[in-house]
Amino acid sequence: MEMLKINGVDREFPAGQMPKTIAELLEQLRIETATVVAEVDGLIVEREKFAKTKLSKGQSIELVRFVPGG
């Protein structure tokens, strides 16, 4: 099993099935990227780099999906 911490909760993936990038993770979670801010181990990843940013097991990821209204 491989693990990522997503919004504070440990999430396990069978070996080889852990998403390889932020973009893959969002696709797996069925989250539209246009409204998402992502941080990996406390550092911002810009939206245009979601597909290029590789994930490693054990990383802590914060995903904030904004909803409209203000």
Binding site: A34, V36, V37, R47, G70
Partner: peptide, 18 residues
């Protein structure tokens, strides 16, 4: 960040943090 649209909220938070 006091916007209305979700995409604009995303834009300014990402801009400030990066």
């Amino acid at each position: 960040e006091c916007f209305d649209k979700a995409e604009e909220k995303q834009m300014i938070v990402e801009t400030v943090l990066s």
